[in-house]
């Protein structure tokens, strides 16, 4: 499955992505997790299974949903506390949970 994280420059999100990858590896989950900036997100959105936004980039939520919802891709904003503490486990849980609903 492919999990896409979006923040402004893709910088702080890439820290989180590294932690999520570790968490996924520990649980033997095969997931492709990438961090994108809001300015390059368009190309990648179509192939995603789950899209998560950093809380500071929640201003693109409507725009992303406009593209993703018709395709049935769930989009959510990551909780600030979880984001701030860079809790990879919790974000991975969130992504898996959303993918299940799909």
């Amino acid at each position: 499955m492919k999990i896409v994280l979006i923040c402004f420059a893709g910088m702080s999100t890439s820290m989180l992505v590294n932690r999520m990858k570790k968490a996924a590896a520990n649980r033997n989950i095969n997931a492709d997790i990438v961090a994108l900036s809001t300015s390059d997100m368009y190309e990648e959105l179509d192939n995603a299974d789950v899209i998560l936004l950093g809380p500071q980039a929640r201003y693109v939520l409507d725009e992303v949903r406009e593209i993703a919802t018709p395709k049935g891709i769930p989009v959510e904003v990551i909780n600030s506390q979880i984001y701030g503490t860079m809790n990879g486990e919790a974000v991975l849980d969130m992504a898996l949970e959303l993918a299940k609903i799909k």
Partner: peptide
Amino acid sequence: NINEPIMFGLP
């Protein structure tokens, strides 16, 4: 100069 951990973690 990346500070999201402080911004959202302190918060």
